[in-house]
């Protein structure tokens, strides 16, 4: 049992997008603030800080979750994936990001990092979703710009592309 005292800064080490990173945090530091202010990963956005808007959604050990409802000290030793980890090394957008761009699934882009992280978890678990399932998953996010229709299109398109690619590989 290790008691972390209030008012002190504790060392937090985690794997951010595949890279081991370490920073300092108070007990009360939220994971969202730790990522942005301590590790400089400002791709994760902060809206409501009470779990409603979804802007801060990241993947913790693979599962999409609110960074604003998680303490930085709780992420010790965990794998945390954020929007910065989606594009390839040369900065090339991944298939989901490209589909968002193609379909105008973003305008201001404030909600987009969170939505992309939810979608990336969701599409791994539900590779061939129905429109209703996609809309259900998106109900955990607020977007003030797009009206969601193009987001739904981008997600369904990505799912279909991935399915087609899997089929191709099977018969290659």
């Amino acid at each position: 049992m290790k008691r972390l005292e209030q008012g002190e800064r504790h060392t937090v080490s985690l794997i951010l997008n595949g890279v081991p990173r370490t920073g300092r945090a108070d007990n009360r530091t939220l994971l969202s603030d730790f990522l942005r202010h301590e590790l400089g990963a400002t791709g994760t956005h902060v809206g409501c800080e009470h779990g409603v808007c979804g802007a801060c959604t990241v993947r913790i050990d693979g599962a999409a979750a609110r960074a604003c409802l998680t303490l930085a000290v709780q992420a010790e030793g965990r794998r945390v994936d954020t929007v910065e980890g989606l594009a390839g090394k040369d900065g090339e957008l991944n298939d989901l990001q490209q589909a968002f761009r193609r379909n105008h699934a973003l305008q201001c882009g404030f909600c987009t990092p969170g939505i992309l992280m939810s979608c990336s978890d969701f599409l791994e678990r539900v590779p061939g979703p129905t429109e209703a399932q996609v809309r259900d998953m998106l109900s955990g996010h607020l977007c003030r710009c797009t009206g969601y229709t193009n987001i739904v299109k981008a997600v369904l398109e990505t799912a279909a592309e991935r399915q087609a690619r899997r089929e191709e590989e099977k018969h290659a």
């Binding site: 049992m1 290790k2 209030q6 008012g7 009360r28 603030d33 000290v73």
Partner: peptide, 17 residues
């Protein structure tokens, strides 16, 4: 909207809690 200060313990077992 940030929490106030608190001590924090990661619990290993029900007995400890």
């Amino acid at each position: 909207m940030k929490p106030g200060a608190f001590d924090y313990i990661r619990i290993d077992s029900a007995e400890e809690a």
